[in-house]
Design a protein around this nucleic acid. Sequence first.
DNA 1: ATATTTTTTTTGACTTGTCTAAAAATAATA
DNA 2: TATTATTTTTAGACAAGTCAAAAAAAATAT
Lengths: 222, 222
Amino acid sequence: MTHSQAEENYLKAIFSISEKEGKAASTNAIAAMMQTTAASVTDMLRRLSEKNLIAYEKYRGVTLSESGHKVATALIRKHRLWEVFLVDKLGFTWDEVHEFAEQLEHVQGDALVNRLDQFLGNPKFDPHGDPIPDAQGRWTHRPQALLSTLQTGDRGVVTGVEDHTTAFLQYLDQQGLALGASLEVIERFPYDHSLRVRTHGDRELVLSEKVCQNLYVRTLNT
Amino acid sequence: MTHSQAEENYLKAIFSISEKEGKAASTNAIAAMMQTTAASVTDMLRRLSEKNLIAYEKYRGVTLSESGHKVATALIRKHRLWEVFLVDKLGFTWDEVHEFAEQLEHVQGDALVNRLDQFLGNPKFDPHGDPIPDAQGRWTHRPQALLSTLQTGDRGVVTGVEDHTTAFLQYLDQQGLALGASLEVIERFPYDHSLRVRTHGDRELVLSEKVCQNLYVRTLNT
DNA sequence: ATATTTTTTTTGACTTGTCTAAAAATAATA
DNA sequence: TATTATTTTTAGACAAGTCAAAAAAAATAT
């Protein structure tokens, strides 16, 4: 069974909302994420429900069924593998690839995504540090924490971002903070929750609360 | 300006019919190629005409406008570059790639196709020997003739196929007739227009009229 | 030149996905 | 608990793309 691109995008949105909020996704939350109206969402929920891709009770929000969960996972797998391709093979930067991957993720055919996976060396994480589920939908978990939770003296390695906007990614590039960059917290400023950190080459940076709340690090036990 | 996938597919069909027949494409010819009805085609021709992508006169067939020609050429470029990617990089065979390329050709974004072109080494021909237009829409021409036109004693190198069906491509694989294979015509059978040819390793094959009319060769002056 | 066949277009209907405006249900507050 | 505010659904409409059946135009044959 194959689904329309619109249906696939709704399933992805429901997946991401349910995961982040830890509960059923509301009509309004879905409408906000899809940049559409609540009326359109209700319509689509009815259709997805008829196809048994979601569990839907009127006024009570929606969760993915097992088959809906599989479709969403496969989409995320494709999206992230194509992002690896675009960055590793075609030389795009991590802030340029989202729109292309949004289109490429809808290309149908298991053989394609699996060959792509193999060609890329079966990567476990995409260029933003997000995990790539394998062909069976299994995720690789990795301990990481927001930089904002580290204490003075703690050290860590950048593993991912919470905010995927171009503006944030380009800011990180300017600061030399790519994935894998190592950091040590030198000083915390309680006044505005900014941090001074030392990074590669003993360079020191001051990072705002907003930045620290959108940057994941794997902490190193010193 | 961006066009729907349906519109793009119609433009491609009109391009290919006009080129093969050397005249305006008829409603029925388009319907046959698109596997749809004449009524649907008439409807779409009206829309494409409103967008100035085609020159359309009722009952008189249709030709591409300059902008329609550009769109069709760009699509063919994308289709064929993705086919090169699928064969050269992902290891698919030449009979497996058409359906994937039909989807991939609709992915939007000039940067993507141009980076892909570069990554593949700016190939001039796809895995079936068909020419790939460059970013400006210029085609590489190459002298080639159908094998059926060769005379006894003529030698040539396989450069392409007229028939792109899986059945034909797999038949050629079985006979060891990949692109680049060299051939010499040993004998012609006027009765059924079949040919006996010698190929690599002094192997001899008898090829039917149908095969010879679907295989292009570059003739070698002996 | 007229009749017949073929091709093309028109008509009306259906599906998917979208929207605005209004109604209904739920949640929040007094 | 009654009222208000928010969320969600319904109703009706529209655009894109499709189809079958009927009508019109063009091509062909007599």
